[in-house]
Design a protein around this nucleic acid. Structure first.
Lengths: 111, 111
DNA sequence: TTGTTCTATCGTAAAAAAACGATAAACTAA
DNA sequence: TTAGTTTATCGTTTTTTTACGATAGAACAA
């Protein structure tokens, strides 16, 4: 795949795409909202609220964790998840940077 | 798929996920950058720069267009694309809204 | 110990995304 | 008209994502 032509994609482009992918599913956005509302933790509560099976929710949590957006710790038999605010701040600024950098170039459409 | 449990996903969650999905590939982010830099248009130039086949680039352009992020017009045998700034502004504010609304709830991690 | 609860992981199936080559349509230039 | 450009679309393959049920491990309760 992608057999190098002129340019490869930059690291920034790839990072942003990875972050975007983590947000590219309504379930994962819903999870982030829940974690933010409840301030923290929660685990099986997410399963109760979402229209998905437990194993599927677990999978989404894993993806969010892999993307660095959330942190998780084990609490006895339960699992506690919460938003990783530092990483979140980073993503936020990267997105803002993308938007503003695109915008400041030129704000006219040609077609 | 998603056999309704308690809540379905909200429209806002789905919209955001759709936008995120449009940005979830380095090629599409690269395309947006190129369009912003060149202010507008371009078509085969994108193919020259990206490490992808022409048909693949065309596919990505189509996805960006479907997501409403870019506009396209035909100019003779060529195709002219440019960023749809209105839609872009909307996405930008939706993302900002997500980030800030999550953040303002509570900024403490529990785990 | 035994049973219960909670959650991660495994195995699997179905759907979507990504990529390519080939082709066809639309236009320009000779 | 004929040849060349440019790009969208078709057909296809491969990979990734999404989803589920079943299961296993960990911890608590009785």
């Amino acid at each position: 795949m992608a057999t190098a032509k002129t340019t490869e994609f930059t690291q920034a482009e790839q990072d942003l795409a990875t972050f975007a992918k983590a947000l590219a599913h309504p379930a994962r956005i819903a999870i982030l909202k829940i974690l933010a509302e409840q301030n923290a933790c929660i685990c099986g509560k997410i399963v109760e609220v979402l229209p998905l099976a437990q194993s599927t929710v677990s999978q989404h949590l894993k993806e969010l964790k892999n993307a660095g957006l959330i942190k998780g710790t084990v609490e006895g038999p339960k699992s506690c998840y919460c938003i990783n605010w530092e990483a979140f701040e980073k993503i936020n600024s990267e997105f803002s940077f993308l938007f503003t950098s695109l915008k400041t170039q030129n704000s006219k459409s040609c077609c």
